[in-house]
Structure formats: C-alpha cells, structure tokens
Design a binder for these strands. Structure first.
Lengths: 340, 340
DNA sequence: TTATGCAGTGAAAGCGCTGTCATATTCGAT
DNA sequence: ATCGAATATGACAGCGCTTTCACTGCATAA
C-alpha cells in the first residue's frame, strides 16, 4: 500500500536516483525530467519514508522536549512556544514528562540513545535530580532549560530570576512599605525556589530587614497546599502586616483565597504577590502583582538554540538568558497598579 | 561512535542474527549464548537503532497527538493524560498543534503519511475544518477525540456534553430559579459550542422559557473577549436577573471579573456558570459552578483505544463515551454548594 | 546403517532511501 | 573528424536491522 520511491521512479520513467535528486534538490535535474517526477510524486501522493531516510542520514528532524511535569499552565506554555518554533524550523516535537510515576532517566535515555531524536531540550528543575546524571551520558546535543549541569558541555537557556525577584522584594519594601515578608516556595531542592529565595534574602538583608527562617515555607507549588498553609497562618500574617511572596501564581492564588475565606481583605489587610505571570495572575481578585516569566519564549528559544547547535556542532556552548520583569497589579496594595 | 548490532555480535562472538533473536525474544536462544549476548549489550550500552528497526517492522511505537491548539489548561491536561498512558503502553507521544499560523493539514498529513507514527489521536473541534477532509486521506489508524468524521471508519472518544450541559441548565432553572439564561459560547462552528448550545436550547424550551437569539453570543473561549463583552452587558444582565452560562471556565472567569469591576456582586446580583471544570473554576471568587469534563481521561482513553486498534486492526470501530457532570459551587447562587 | 526430527546458529536477502561512481549524451573547440 | 568538458542519468553499495532459509550437530526411530 505505501508508495515508495521505486513506484515514483517507474511512473516517471526514471531511476530512483533521479527521484531522490529531485527530492533533495541537490544536483541539477533536467527541467523536463523534474516536472515529470514531481507530477508522479503528486499523483501518487508520495512521501519519503522517514525511517529509510533517517537510516541513511542519521537524523530524524525530531526534537525531544523533556519536562519535569506536564501539569499546569507553566509547562503548557513552554510546550506551546517550543512546538511553534520547532515547526517553524522544520522539526517535529516529541514531548515527555520526566516526572509522574515514571523514571525520568528511563524516558530520557530511551528517547535520546535510541537515536530517534536529533537533540533534546531538557528542563531540570530539581537540583540533584537523577536526570542530571543521566544527561552526562546523553550522546546527542541537548540544551538545558532553566538550569546547568556541571561537568558536561551543553547549551542552556536560563531565566534571570534574580532580577525579577529582587525587583519584586524591593518594590514591596520601598514602594509598599513592607517590614516583614513571608516567603512561600516550592521544594527546597527546586532550582527556581532556590534562586528566588536567595534574591529575597539578599534584598531583605540589604534593606536591614530580618530574615526569619520561620517565615520561609517550602511547599510544592500547588494551590491546595498553599491554601491549607495559609488557612492556618493568614490571620497571624494579617495581624503583623506581613507581606506574602509566593514563588508562583498558583500558590499566591491559594493564599488569597484562604485569606478571603477568613474574611481578610487582600490587599487591605494582607498583601500577596506571586511569580510567573501565568493567566491565573489576572484572574484572581485582586489581580496578582507578580514577576513575568516569558514561558513560551523559553520554549521557543531553547528549540532555536538547539537547532543552531544541530547546524553547527562545533560552536562553543551558548548560554542565553531571558529576563524576568516585575508586573505590578493590585494584590500588593501598591498605588501604581497597571490597568487591565 | 554509535554502537550497532554488529559490534554486539562481535563482542559476544555470535552472528547478528543471534543478537537480534535475543533482542526480540523470539526463537529460543541457548541460555549460555543469551547470557553472553546480554552481557555484551550491557557493556556496550547498546540500543537498537530506531530507524533500521522501523524500516523493517514498518512501525515506530510513536503515536501522534494533534490538537486544535495548545493554549490553556484544557489541552494541557489532555496531553498529560495521553502522555502518561502512552508511556505506560510502551509508546512515545508526538504532540502537534493543528492551529496557530500553521496549516493543520500540512502538519497532520506530514505526521501521518510520513510513516513516522503508528497512529494518531486527533481532536477536531471545528465542524467543517479542513482537518476533517485531510483525515479522509490518512492511511494509518486514527482516533478522533471529541468528534466524528463522516464517511470514514474510525474509532472515537467523545464526551457526553449534553448530559452535563442539560444538568446545568436544569439546575439553573429548577434549583436556582433562572428565568433568563444568557449563553456565551465559542465560535459558531465549534463542536463543543454547538452541543452545549443545543442542550441549552432544548432544556429552555422544555421548561417553556424563551430562547432569545440575542441572548446567545459567540466568542472565542478567551477570558479577554468574555471580559470585554461582559463589561458592556453585565449591568443589563444584573438588572434583569439573568444567569450567564459560559461555554468554558475561562470565559466565566472573565465575566465574573467584569461584573466585579462594575460593582456587581456574583452570585448575589448576577449568576455565572462555566464549563470544563479546569482549575480556574476553583480559583475564581465565587468559585464556579461548572460541568466537569475529564480532560486527562480523554487523552488517556484515546491513546488506549488507539493502541487496541493497533493490536487488532480488524476490530470494528469503537465509540467510547465519557461522562460530564455538573459540579455545583457558589457562582450560581445555589444553596447546595460543595465544600472545597 | 539410513532416515527423521529438532534445537541452535549463521548467511544473506531485503526494508526504502541517499550518495558515490560510472556511463551516456551533448556541445563547443580544436 | 577528434577531443574535453559539462550535463544528465542510471547502477549499485550500504545505512542497521529482522527474518527466512539452510546448515550443523546430536538424539531418536526405523
């Protein structure tokens, strides 16, 4: 049933070599012959077999995208950006989640060493994940999204989280008059959490404000956990005029909702800010002051860098940095709220 | 650099046939020989080349997932469910968006006719999309998610939207005392919109309530559009005690926010309900009464059905139906709100 | 003894393609 | 007429694998 290059050759009355030449636009094929071949291709609706081609060329035009998880808007946007750019550059995208109940390594090494994909974009959000070790063994080009892997040469695309995080904390202190800021992060080993927490501590110290370890919480980025935590603590926070800096928008939303449930008004009695600037940030009331992270750009840029490496394997490792920016809305009680 | 079956054969001192036999666990290989081969495989960290294998076997263990769009939590959850199930069954998933500025057909036919994927799951949300026509030409097994394609035999996984939609409208009328319900849908040609609108009209008529065409709006499922529309109409709606039935949660959220902005209280002065039961539904205040659609199950089930078809190409076309259920929260003003 | 069967293995034929090399044709210049 | 170069095409090897078929021993049956 599947039509092969042989069929096309027969119909066009040429050899398969000529058909191949037409397909690959390599050497010049006589105009008339080319027309004939192209017609045959069209009539038979012929598509070159990817496997045969891959076998010869040792490449597939498929890129792998391995994320820690597929849950939520954050990853969804990365996928979207990556997918768009991949197609733009003539590649297909294969998405995998390293997490879940599956062993990330399995997936990763399966995908990469199979020779199926030409290169991969990996997001490593956990500081000592096994994924990192596995990456050391990966024989194909890969770019690390939002992280670094020691001892292995690779390209990377990172977000300058510090910039946004620092701007946020400064804003809370200088413009909103914060004296106490509670930090609600993700897991202790999570790279993003670490970066954001450090920025928070730095700015606090520079502003001569105390950094109380009791004011640092490590959850799992989920709405529910944040809601639960806040349900217990929100009254105390409000009483002490504390600000809450959540490491993502979802947790910020959970905290706001917990506050509302306790009859505490945000931002009048409690100020809460988030991180990421997902659409959630615009859906909470009050809308979230947050740090904008260009998620789909991350995906797109990572794919782009990967493709460049594929084109030129010799180029020195690149590290691209994307900026994160403070977005001021209402949840921090600041006067300078942007309009919708 | 890449180690081939040849290398393994040499190291184990056997022919490649034997190595292949060990790999495929087909004919019985002598225990001792097998051990030797397995050792060699391990020592060399050998992985069969996917292309060579695909070329012989005419199959790749890759499944395609083609969605109308990759934006938002709805699709993200489908991907997640599909991905998990695919890995569970030993397949890789390739995700494509038919939408965007890319021609869905191109992607679809490229993916399918290339012979790269063994089968595809396609979501066709537009009633007369070109995708449908393209599907007619697809030569590999495919399952349609949330739709039907006339004239072509295929499996499908659908959501019984009517059930949920009817339950919703009945609830609004019977339990909440709605006399006028405004319907805010997606595009006129969108399958889901059509289903939900029909259910809405049916129930309205059966309840002897007027269905005013002016009360039916067609937007694009986005928060922003819904917000804009509601900003103009929300006061009129509130004055006439209208209920708003939005065809997804995002639009419902936009409408609620527009109302709040105009100083109209939800659910006291205006009642708004959504559809899908994405996480957004729990993040709005008041939380959304909505219809739960099992998104990740959709993805998983579609993959499962596809794999069954792959195993048994002869089996008659299946149509699996997933249920949608009313979830009552606060935004409809009903007394029977569930707790968080 | 010769025939028969069977477990275990190797040789070799492709799968559909690309790319190298050889061959055929044409044309301008000797 | 003869040659060289340029142009256009075909024959064929080989990518790494699976699978068929043939072959080798060795045990059992006739």
């Amino acid at each position: 049933m599947p039509v092969s290059i042989e069929d096309v050759a027969q119909r066009a009355n040429v050899s398969i070599s000529t058909v191949s030449r037409v397909l690959n636009r390599r050497n010049i094929v006589n105009d008339k012959t080319r027309k004939r071949v192209e017609l045959a291709i069209q009539e038979l609706n012929y598509r070159p077999n990817v496997f045969a081609r891959g076998l010869m060329l040792q490449q597939s035009n498929i890129l792998g995208l391995v994320l820690p998880d597929l849950h939520g808007e954050f990853y969804s946007e990365i996928i979207r950006g990556a997918n768009l750019k991949a197609h733009e550059l003539g590649y297909q995208l294969m998405v995998s989640s390293a997490g879940g109940n599956h062993d990330g390594n399995t997936v990763l090494s399966a995908v990469s060493n199979h020779g199926l994909v030409d290169g991969i974009v990996v997001m490593v959000s956990d500081i000592d994940s096994k994924t990192k070790k596995t990456l050391g063994q990966v024989m194909i080009p890969f770019v690390v999204l939002d992280g670094q892997v020691e001892g292995v040469k690779h390209d990377s695309v990172v977000i300058d989280q510090r910039h946004g995080a620092e701007a946020m904390v400064k804003h809370l202190i200088n413009d909103c008059g914060a004296k106490r800021i509670v930090f609600v992060g993700g897991l202790k080993t999570n790279i993003d959490t670490i970066d954001r927490l450090e920025a928070y501590k730095d700015v606090m110290q520079r502003a001569s404000l105390p950094v109380n370890d009791d004011d640092v919480y490590h959850l799992d980025f989920s709405y529910e956990k944040a809601f639960q935590l806040a349900s217990k603590l929100v009254e105390d926070w409000a009483d002490t005029s504390a600000f809450v800096f959540a490491a993502n928008d979802e947790m910020a939303a959970g905290i706001i909702d917990a506050a509302i449930e306790k009859g505490i008004s945000v931002p009048d009695q409690l100020r809460v800010v988030g991180f990421d600037d997902t659409r959630i940030a615009q859906m909470t009331r009050p809308r979230l002051t947050t740090v904008h992270v260009p998620m789909s750009s991350m995906g797109a840029l990572a794919v782009e860098v990967l493709c460049q490496r594929l084109k030129d394997p010799q180029r020195p490792p690149t590290k691209m940095t994307l900026q994160s920016d403070l977005v001021v809305r209402e949840s921090c009680g600041s006067a300078t709220a942007e309009s919708l």
